[in-house]
Design a protein around this nucleic acid. Structure first.
Lengths: 153, 153
DNA sequence: GGTGAAAAATGGTGGAC
DNA sequence: GTCCACCATTTTTCACC
């Protein structure tokens, strides 16, 4: 997974993160290079998987997704089969935006975006009916102080 | 913040989320419309703020950001001035990718991306030296099961 | 609100240095 | 590896339905 990235690559990535709709010429000018080398570097980084999906960030509130929960999960089951099913469920559910397996006494954390508390409860009921879970704590977000996809470069 | 979005808008947003590098023609064809109306709808939704930043998703591992922590914070301070400073600190720190104020006994949750455990400790020390915090629990991610910016439409 | 065409800008490629 | 110029595609605007 380790990939050689030099200063010029970092500058290009930074520009792309900031605004991927910029033209090649514009990016080239800002990073102090010209079109072809910038284009070649971008192509290489896409092939290597450093650069992934190109997307737009939507406003969840405007789309009626007004509730955001962080869900802390403890489980008693640690068998492979149980885990497979659990992971599949999480990946299939579009309201699960993030899922991590953790070190320590909490086993998993999820970030879940839904319309409202009732929609969260529906998700929760569906989840626990599909897989056995020992303990669940839901943390309700009152205010999104910060939310960014921009990685520090 | 509530905005009128019809079925066609949703289809367009879905396509843009999936792949923002698609041409207008391609999007128009997929949603069963044509170029100009799709373009007008996209422009309107950008003005309304439904569509925000256009960006690329980078692979954190490839960039050497191999550690991801979720940080649960309890604080004894609830004064306006303290909060102002705390929020400013979070917004300024690029390693803080998400920050939410919570309901319940945990006051804040952060998602923090750093190179390694040492870099996290540096962040943690900097944070507690800037603002007084009652209790901090760091959850270390062992495995990113899912991470998406695609909102359910 | 949709269609089609035309002008301006951009992406992608190949050749010279 | 960088610069430059070329052409096909795409974006963006506009007049018309």
């Amino acid at each position: 997974m380790a990939v050689r990235i030099d200063e010029m690559d970092r500058k290009i990535l930074s520009q792309l993160q900031e605004d991927a709709s910029q033209s090649l010429d514009e990016i080239a000018r800002k990073v102090g290079s010209s079109k072809t080398p910038v284009w070649n570097r971008i192509r290489r980084m896409k092939e290597q998987g450093v650069i992934g999906r190109q997307t737009v960030i939507l406003d969840p509130e405007a789309l009626g997704l007004e509730a955001c929960f962080f869900v802390l999960i403890r489980t008693s089951e640690h068998e492979a089969e149980w885990q497979q099913k659990f992971l599949r469920t999480l990946r299939e559910r579009p309201e699960v935006l993030e899922a991590h397996r953790l070190a320590g006494d909490i086993d998993y954390i999820l970030k879940v975006r839904v319309q409202n508390a009732r929609a969260y409860d529906a998700f929760y009921q569906a989840l626990i009916s599909e897989v056995k879970i020992y303990n669940v704590t839901a943390l309700l977000s009152m205010e999104e102080i910060k939310s960014t996809t921009l990685l520090p470069l």
